[in-house]
Amino acid sequence: MSLDEADIAALFVTLKLAGLTTLILLLLGTPLAWWLARSKWRYKFLLEALIALPLVLPPTVLGFYLLITLGPNGPLGNLSQALGGPSLAFTFTGLVIGSVFYSMPFVIQPLQNAFAAIGSRPLEVAATLRASPLDRFFTIAVPLARSGFLTATVLGFAHTIGEFGVVLMIGGNIPGKTQVLSIAIYDHVEALEYGQAHLLSGGLLLLSFLMLILVYAVNRRFSLVRQ
């Protein structure tokens, strides 16, 4: 028994989706998390609640609204079509957009916490040592928040791999394009192909566990060094 072609395609789609989503979230989420950690804006909590929403919202709800937004009659779907592209629903691009929302808290919250834990002192020290604000961010804040970056990366990646409801709503189930592992497993179970379902499930279980072991082991080492 081995993986068939569709399973391998689903694996690649899944890894590509998780990788791309994590990258986008790190790029957009880092400045946002930094701002959230440092800002004293009194209505900041509204934004924090919004970012945490995917933690509690049923994925189908998120998926439903994304479908409306990305579909041919939705604002983003319209925009994409106006620019000569397809409607975003049922495309890989749509899937990436959906995943970015879906995994957002898993990347932003660890980053925000890590930035907040640094406090303002090391940055003030760096300022008195001639470092400009951007310089301070890259040479002090980022290295000191490295455990936060590791956690954010792994959680963002792993959580995107585990995505099901949102993908089902907006990605459809197009083999080789938008079919991801979690949905492939569902299909196998539906078709009573328990062997292949086992293989994929076991693989995902192992992968997720290994990634979390990595996070906890490395973070433990960081905190020992820091003490």
């Binding site: 760096a126 008195t128 040592l129």
Partner: peptide
């Protein structure tokens, strides 16, 4: 960061 000064803080401030 543009003031030519040195600052020593009360508690440990090494990176």
């Amino acid at each position: 960061h543009q003031r030519p000064l040195g600052y020593v803080f009360q508690e440990t401030s090494l990176f």
